[in-house]
Amino acid sequence: DEIHIHFNGVTIEFRGLTEEAKKALEEAIKRGASEEELKELARRLIK
């Protein structure tokens, strides 16, 4: 299970995320999180 985020022309790929983690990332994107914020969020979620 993986998710691809297209962000300002950059694709960020995450693997092994739970549904909750995906929802958290989607919410962050909707509120306009920066690419760095998304990566940091993903790091926290994957652990």
Rank of each mutant, 00 (worst) to 15 (best):
E26T: 12
L25N: 00
T18D: 12
A21D: 14
A28P: 00
D1M: 13
R43M: 14
L38P: 00
K39M: 15
E37Y: 09
E2P: 14
H4Y: 07
E35S: 09
A42M: 10
K23R: 11
R43Y: 07
F7I: 15
I46D: 08
F14K: 02
L41A: 03
E35P: 14
G16Y: 13
A42I: 13
E40K: 06
A33S: 08
T11L: 12
E37W: 12
K47H: 11
D1W: 13
R15W: 15
T11S: 03
K47A: 13
E36L: 07
E35C: 11
N8Y: 01
G16F: 08
I29L: 10
I5K: 01
F14Y: 05
A21G: 13
E26H: 11
E36T: 13
L45I: 14
K47M: 09
F7M: 14
F7Y: 05
L41N: 00
G16M: 04
E26F: 14
L45R: 00
H6K: 03
K39Y: 15
H4E: 04
R44P: 01
K30F: 09
H4M: 04
R31I: 06
H4C: 08
S34F: 06
R15S: 15
K39T: 15
D1V: 13
N8C: 15
E35I: 15
E27R: 08
I5W: 06
I46Y: 02
K22E: 04
S34G: 11
R44V: 12
E37T: 08
E40H: 06
A24W: 08
I46W: 01
K39V: 15
S34P: 05
A28V: 08
E35G: 11
G16H: 13
T11R: 05
E26Q: 12
K47F: 07
A42F: 13
R15E: 15
N8A: 05
E2N: 13
R15P: 15
E35F: 14
E40G: 04
G16Q: 09
I5P: 02
K30A: 13
E40V: 05
A42D: 01
L17D: 01
L45S: 04
V10W: 00
G32V: 05
K22A: 10
R43G: 13
T18L: 03
V10N: 06
A24H: 11
A33N: 03
A33V: 12
G9W: 01
R44D: 13
L17Q: 02
I46K: 04
E27V: 06
H6Y: 02
G16R: 02
K39S: 08
I29T: 02
E13I: 15
A28I: 13
E2S: 15
I5S: 00
E36K: 07
K23D: 10
F14R: 01
H6V: 06
L17P: 01
K23P: 11
K22R: 07
E37F: 12
T18K: 05
E20C: 07
G32R: 05
L17G: 04
E27K: 06
I46C: 13
G9I: 01
L38W: 06
T11H: 04
I29C: 06
E2G: 13
I5L: 12
I29K: 02
A28N: 02
T11C: 12
H4T: 12
A21Q: 11
T18Y: 03
A21L: 07
E37D: 08
L25G: 00
G9K: 01
